[in-house]
Amino acid sequence: MLTDIAVLGAGMHPWGKWGRSFVAYGVAAARAALADAGLDWREVPSVVGADTVRGGYPGYVAGASFARALGWQGARVTSVYAACASGAQAIGTARAQILAGLADVVLVVGADAAPKGFFAPAGGERPDDPDWLRFRVLGATNPAYFGLYARRRMALYGDTPEDFARVKVKNAAAGALNPLARYRKAVSADDVAASPVVADPLRLLDICATSDGGAALVLSSMAFARRHGHPDPVRIRAVSTVTPEYPRTVLDLPDIATDAMVGHGVADRPFRPFRASIARAAYEEAGIGPEDLSLAEVYDLSTALELEWYEDLGLCPAGHGAALVRNGVTALGGRVPVNPSGGLASFGEAVPAQAIAQVCELTWQLRGAAGDRQVPGARAGITANQGLFGHGSAVVAVR
């Protein structure tokens, strides 16, 4: 297809709390991706960096920060920010450059050095931002918000804390097989139940940590890939960065967070939750559906939110996410493994790197190079993520 681009290289710095600069993590990931692609940095005409708000000015110009650390060589540089969707925006920017003929090959890098605890609101007063309103008007920081979502699922669908624990057990088992994960220890449902309550009904092991880490991709045109000895590379076929549909007046907002925004018959479009619209746009662009997926990497900020993603991706109808995890459908060895990397449950959040790391995992899975966590015969995968202020994030990769 004309919209396909090739993934020539994927690389990551292991997640953890290492006490170094985000630039160090990004450079390590970039060098790993370049080595995987068989390219020298001096051969790369463009670099796109995913920004971090925690790195001071260098974090706001991440593309240039990484280029300088790798060694100025004249490459075109771009820096993008979209909160947790920054990595997808960076991938989308690189793809646009490649498809427009501005560059045959582009390096995409994201990295973060995160604080301890949960992320506090940043960016000043934003009374027109529903996520700022969530923080400031409701006092619903992320753990509280995750707890509200979990309670909603329990009330609407009959999900239980045991269902949420199954998600953690599943992802921890996969993460134990991933040498790049921060947490590499299997846990039991009893371990989850014994961990402290953070935001009822969610316990400490239901919620992801914050982490340091980095991820990078080398992307190219299909012609460049063939010329450089990659006749059948993993291909990115779609990048969805859509926004929600909702009334413009703040007082008319149906929910106090952009990830809960829903369609309201705008331009005769059907009712669709925001996360479902992110996935739908990716499927439509890629020309595939959920039935074609071999695996998915989703944004499991909490165990309950992973169950929501099953439904938003179309893996099952609304309210049936818990049944998938109960029946092992989304575990390694199941029909559609979700988060075979171990997910954020095993990695934690390194915000600008997350969406890029998800595509790294798809790349290794579609190559058949994922080791003990390999999904047999993987041919197509999707990532799902999102950022504050209505930033969608989904990538479809195929082989």
Rank of each mutant, 00 (worst) to 15 (best):
D4R: 06
G26M: 07
L34D: 02
A35P: 00
W41H: 07
W41C: 05
D51K: 09
T52H: 05
Y60F: 15
V61E: 08
G63D: 06
R68W: 01
R68P: 01
S86E: 04
Q97P: 08
G101P: 09
A103T: 06
V105E: 02
V108C: 04
V108N: 01
V109C: 09
A111F: 09
A120H: 04
A122G: 06
E125V: 15
R136Q: 14
L138Q: 14
T141A: 15
F146I: 04
A155T: 10
F164V: 12
A165V: 12
A165Q: 13
R166H: 08
A174P: 14
R182N: 02
K185Q: 15
V187W: 05
D191M: 08
S195A: 08
C208E: 07
T210L: 15
A215K: 06
A223I: 01
G229C: 00
D232M: 00
P233E: 01
V234P: 00
R237T: 15
L251F: 01
I256K: 07
A267W: 12
R272E: 15
A282S: 05
G289S: 14
L293V: 10
Y299N: 11
T303D: 07
L307T: 13
L307C: 11
L324R: 13
P337Q: 11
P340E: 08
S341M: 14
Q358K: 05
A369R: 15
V375Y: 03
P376D: 08
P376M: 07
P376A: 14
I382S: 07
G390I: 00
A397G: 10
